[in-house]
């Protein structure tokens, strides 16, 4: 079984501005199936750039990217789109849901663009299953504007999962969420990871990173540290603790 992700000396240089920005400077990285990786680093260190490369939304300026054994750097626009559709699930930092479109339809969206046509009924069933996975079955007909931040994030996760991706990429999935909701999201991730989905997420928070199996740190476009997580947290247990703490606070108040 090939590695899900294999980066060889990958560079990304943005030429759009007046001076070129060298956002990723020679990253080599291998991620095996079933891994759960957290990427950390200061703001501007190139985490999102790396995620976009991994997510086939962008192409490396230099270097090679093998995704599940296929060389993504040589693919054209449409082939990249098909890879994004079939093999990848992307959870964006800002949710990026379609406004005025129900949660269910948002989750159905990737199936609309699937290469093999999916019957409308199958589409609905699959979308509902994914909403169920993130605990949002009862919000299927709500618009994003009627959902809380955490709920929107979960819709975005459900959308990323609907085509059964091999690799789930999440850029700061808990960035805008309170700590309890963050733990809930980590719970969903750990559950998916247990089912065999490989996950790469970006986070600023050290304690969120401790829910993963492996931590990477970036600085100035380079990987400076790659360590397995010692003392990994489980979302279920943490959630239990938070709930206990909450009720204790209520009793004393």
């Amino acid at each position: 079984m090939p590695a899900v992700v294999q980066l060889d000396e990958v560079h990304k240089i943005y030429e759009s501005g007046e001076i070129p920005v060298h956002a990723v400077r020679g990253v080599s990285l291998t991620i095996e199936p079933g891994d759960f990786v957290a990427v950390m680093g200061a703001s501007g260190s190139g985490k999102s750039t790396l995620m976009n490369l991994l997510g086939c939304l962008d192409r490396p300026t230099k270097g090679r990217y093998l995704l599940d054994g296929t060389d993504a750097s040589s693919l054209d626009r449409n082939q990249l789109a098909d890879i994004r559709n079939r093999k990848l699930g992307f959870v964006f930092q800002g949710f990026n849901l379609l406004a005025r479109t129900t949660a269910l339809e948002n989750v159905e969206l990737p199936m609309l663009y699937a290469k093999t046509r999916v019957a409308a009924r199958t589409m609905r069933a699959r979308a509902l299953r994914c909403l169920d996975l993130v605990g949002l079955t009862n919000r299927a007909d709500h618009f994003p504007s009627q959902l809380s931040g955490g709920q929107q994030q979960r819709v975005a996760i459900a959308r990323a999962l609907v085509n059964d991706p091999q690799l789930l990429l999440a850029d700061e999935p808990t960035g805008n969420l309170d700590s309890k909701t963050s733990v809930e999201i980590m719970g969903v991730f750990q559950q998916l990871n247990a089912q065999g989905i490989t996950i790469v997420m970006v986070t600023h928070e050290l304690d969120i990173a401790r829910y993963s199996r492996r931590n990477l740190v970036m600085r100035d476009g380079r990987l400076v540290s790659d360590t397995p997580v010692a003392g990994r947290l489980t979302a279920a247990a943490e959630l239990q603790r938070i709930l206990e703490a909450e009720s204790a606070a209520q009793l004393t108040a």
Binding site: G55, L57, R77, N78, A81, D82, R84, N85, R86, F90, F92, N96, L97, L98, L109, P110, L112, Y113, A114, R159, N163
Partner: peptide, 10 residues
Amino acid sequence: GIRLAVGAHG
């Protein structure tokens, strides 16, 4: 952008 990101072709 969202449609393209989830796999829509041009």
